[in-house]
Design a protein around this nucleic acid. Structure first.
Length: 259
DNA sequence: GTTAATACCTGTTCGC
DNA sequence: TGCGAACAGGTATTAA
C-alpha cells in the first residue's frame, strides 16, 4: 500500500468495537499512504495529511486484499478501500473486536490505546532483565502478567501458554517470582515462539486467516495449546497437558515440568 | 494503587 | 435433525 492513494473509502457501519472517528471514510479518501508500520497489535498506516490510520484486528478481524473487479460484498465487510492502482482492501471482522481510529502521526505514541504499552518482544529493548523489572512486585500469576500489554506488547493467550511451556515456568507462578535465569529463559522463549509463528504464517483458529485468505500453519506447531490430555512434548517428561482457567481464559500447561 | 471480574460480539462446537 | 448453551479472543470498564 505504500505510496498508493486511497481513491475510495467506505465505512459500512458507524462502529466496530468503538465508534469510528467522525467522517472516517471521507478523511481516508484521497490520502496517499506514506508509511506502513506496526506497534504492538496495531497496524499503523501513515497518511500524507500527517494523520495515521490505526487498525486493530481484534480476534477475528482480517484485511483481505484483491486486484481487479470489485469483490462481492461479504457479511462483516465493515470497511472497504480501493487504491488508485486498482487494489481492493477489505476489513472483515465477524466479532467486531477490532477497532480503527485516525490520529496525528507525530502523536501516535500517545494515543489512548498505545500509551503505556510495553516493549516489542522481538526488539533489543526486551530482555530478561527488562522483563524482570516489569514483573517486579506484581502479585498476579505470570500468565496474567504476560497478557498485560504494559509488560510486553503483542502477546495473546495462545503465545503466552506456548512461551511458558517452552521455558518450563508454571503459569501459576507469581509474576514477581520470575527473575534472573527464569526471566532470561522466558524472554528467550517468547522471542522463539513469535519467530516460529511468523515463519509459519501465524496461527489459524477457526476463521483466522492471512491476507490471501489462506490459513496460517502455526497451530500445527502448538506444543500445549488446545492439547489437553496429550503427553507432554518435553523429552522424557511423564506429564500430560492440563487445561486450567486463569482470569477467565484457558491456560494449557504441563504440571510436571513447568515450575 | 493493585488485582480480579465483567461486558462486548458472533460463529462454531458440543451436548441433549 | 434441531436447538440452546458454552466457548473463543483483547481490552476497556467496573468492582473488589
Amino acid at each position: 500500500m505504500d505510496g498508493r492513494v486511497l481513491a475510495h473509502a467506505e465505512a459500512r457501519r458507524p462502529d466496530l468495537r468503538w465508534p469510528l472517528p467522525t467522517d472516517f471514510a471521507r478523511r481516508l479518501q484521497g490520502r496517499r499512504v506514506v508509511g506502513l508500520r506496526r506497534r504492538a497489535k496495531y497496524i499503523l498506516i501513515d497518511l500524507d495529511d500527517a494523520q495515521s490510520w490505526l487498525i486493530h484486528l481484534g480476534m477475528s478481524g482480517r484485511m483481505l486484499l484483491s486486484d481487479g473487479a470489485e469483490p462481492a460484498r461479504e457479511p462483516h465487510d465493515h470497511v472497504i478501500v480501493r487504491t488508485d492502482d486498482g487494489c481492493w482492501v477489505r476489513f472483515n471482522d465477524a466479532r467486531r473486536f477490532g477497532s480503527m481510529d485516525l490520529w496525528p502521526t507525530g502523536d501516535v505514541e500517545n494515543h489512548r490505546l498505545l500509551s503505556g504499552i510495553g516493549p516489542e518482544p522481538l526488539g533489543n529493548a526486551f530482555s530478561g532483565a527488562s522483563l524482570s523489572d516489569a514483573l517486579a512486585g506484581k502479585r498476579t500469576p505470570i500468565k496474567a502478567a504476560l497478557l498485560d500489554q504494559r509488560v510486553v506488547a503483542g502477546l495473546g493467550n495462545i503465545y503466552v501458554s506456548e512461551a511458558l511451556f517452552r521455558s518450563r515456568i508454571s503459569p501459576k507462578r507469581m509474576a514477581m517470582n520470575v527473575w534472573g535465569a527464569r526471566a532470561d529463559r522466558l524472554c528467550a522463549a517468547i522471542k522463539a515462539v513469535l519467530a516460529d509463528a511468523i515463519v509459519a504464517g501465524g496461527s489459524s483458529l477457526r476463521d483466522h486467516r492471512q491476507v490471501s485468505g489462506e490459513l496460517g500453519y502455526f497451530q500445527h506447531a502448538f506444543q500445549v495449546y488446545d492439547r489437553e490430555g496429550e503427553n507432554c512434548a518435553h523429552k522424557g517428561c511423564p506429564g500430560s497437558v492440563q487445561r486450567i482457567v486463569q482470569a477467565g481464559r484457558s491456560t494449557f500447561y504441563c504440571p510436571k515440568c513447568q515450575r
